[in-house]
Design a protein around this nucleic acid. Structure first.
Lengths: 335, 335
DNA sequence: TTGAAAGCGCTACCAC
DNA sequence: GTGGTAGCGCTTTCAA
């Protein structure tokens, strides 16, 4: 691949001049500029971003860490970040962190090696202290979907407990009293918070004798199916299901329907996340809207500002509340 | 951020020695190694990948270009590439190419600037000649989901026409004679090829008087809804629908059902791609399986081999044929 | 086993 | 307007 030297020598100018025209620098004669441009086109010169980053001590690369790509929730996250990257003429380096401590740390280190000045990181496994350490080392790092005491200004998060409460209130208002909670078995905070909000709200309600059966599984379509199967085998009555996410909800619905249970006539189901899929499932899924794409956009903007040391502190929203999207999978309890 | 010099001076050794321990180089005394390691940990040293890439004239970065992230089909593609990247200890740089010539070229150039030695590119808009030019400049570039005459060894593609044929044969075998083709209105080759295979097969069949109505829309859920709406308003009989992709198929099903048409009792619907969603739609979608993740993995391996000049030509599969996945959305024509 | 030094491709500063 | 050149952080000879 050709270098700036090649261009310079063919065009008969110095590399300084070539650099100026490449960077649209000022003070370049028109004929010189044209000549250089012509040579660049002829030999197909493309500047080396590594060399540039090295001398400028700065990248045009925005890093993202998500657990995996093939999950619509994380795809939306990445998509939000990507949009901002494009807006700000940055590139996006994506690194998947999987679901373990080590791989999350690896993914982040990779971005640091590339000297991404800004990064949006979705980490659930790493300890608070590790992340705080990291936040000191990398000024432009922002943690999404997590709240870390002490560095809240570097975090963007959703109030999971609120989500549980809102879902419970909705189901309670519909007259349900026998609940099933199909929760994630991942060892992270979110399922606990959602459960807490859900359970507390129900227990504080005056409905006599509300019961809640909880079953934990992988937060996937498959996991939802298995959880529903298990729920059915328990053989206890329930008229409302709160699933950890839309995937579980839809998996559960499919098993429930296969067993002759009508949604929402016999059982109401509510999901979480509001991924695209939930609008197209049958029945359309009632769910808690998680504004992840919007959050990701803000995280990316914040990361870039922090990376530039230009964070304007005040005008950023860090805390988001999910909202109920009422569709077709929930209805009044007919018992 | 600290550099190799910092480590060297604190540890009281030369930068050459530090470099050796960082790279697990040979011939480093044990105490020296330990001392250096200790300093690195203390000051939180992370090697600068840009500097490294500059001198080695080589990256550990595998580039990918896809149109967008928030489409499950492309997410699968990226996921396949990512898996191989991880296997081969490479990083993945993702660049979105959108749906225009300029943005596709931008996306590719970005990867070239970063000097990715290997890249998997999904380009539908750029001309063959441009891509051939590119393939000369970048030895490790592989084009996925496209076949470019002259550089077939650098391409991995699916036989779209075959897909259309197989879908048609399936529907014909079920006794259908009145067809609707809900095709993509994108100006690329795929919809044309799928149509060609579909239409030819039907016309060559001996069924008297087969009719095919074609409607074009965006290849999305929304587009499928609109296409179905339009189809209904045509007021002509049809008992089988071949959609450009699963999203359109599912969008169409939702409109059809809203209009009291039962799937598959009244109308059979077949999709294309076999994205995860199609397993969980109701009814479960009959579709053409597009082994995109597998293709992407192979593309990534190929890209890495070509990037290393070590392409072992013969043992790579370049041409893929879609296969029918029979689920619940198609059945015999009862008319 | 270790160090000195050249040089990767580029930007930015200083001369002219 | 243009050229010369130091130096970004690192790897890799070559010597010692």
């Amino acid at each position: 691949m050709s270098t700036i030297k090649d261009v310079a020598s063919i065009a008969g100018v110095s590399i300084a001049t070539v650099s100026r025209v490449v960077n649209n620098g000022p003070k370049v004669g028109n004929k010189t500029r044209d000549k250089v441009l012509k040579v660049m086109a002829e030999i197909g010169y493309t500047p080396n971003a590594n060399a540039r980053a090295l001398v400028k001590k700065k990248n045009t690369t925005l890093g993202v860490v998500i657990p995996a790509l093939n999950d619509p929730f994380f795809a939306s996250l990445a998509n939000g970040v990507e949009r901002i990257a494009r807006d700000k003429k940055q590139h996006m380096l994506l690194s998947t962190g999987g679901f373990s401590c080590e791989s999350e740390l690896n993914a982040i280190n990779l971005l640091i090696e590339q000297r991404c000045e800004s990064m949006v990181v979705h980490s659930k496994k790493l300890a608070d202290e590790t992340l705080i350490e990291l936040s000191k080392k990398v000024p432009g790092i922002i943690f999404i979907d997590r709240i870390i005491p002490g560095i809240e200004e570097r975090c963007i998060w959703l109030e999971n407990m609120e989500g549980g409460k809102i879902a419970a209130r909705h189901l309670l208002a519909l007259g349900h009293a026998n609940f099933a909670l199909l929760n994630s078995n991942f060892d992270i905070e979110d399922p606990n918070l959602r459960r807490k909000g859900f359970v507390e709200t129900i227990e504080n309600a005056n409905s006599v004798q509300a019961i809640i059966q909880e079953i934990n599984h992988e937060p996937t379509l498959k996991g939802g199916e298995m959880a529903a199967q298990q729920l059915l085998s328990l053989n206890k009555p329930f008229s409302a299901v709160f699933a950890y996410n839309d995937a579980m909800a839809i998996g559960a619905i499919s098993v429930l329907e296969d067993n002759g249970i009508r949604i929402p006539e016999d059982v109401s189901v509510i999901g979480f996340d509001d991924v695209l899929l939930s609008q197209y499932s049958r029945p359309k899924l009632t769910t808690m809207h998680y504004p992840i794409e919007n959050m990701a956009e803000n995280a990316a903007k914040l990361a870039i500002e922090f990376g530039n040391n230009s964070a304007s502190k005040n005008d950023f929203k860090h805390r988001y509340i999910p909202s109920l999207v009422k569709r077709e999978s929930t209805s009044s309890c007919l018992d």
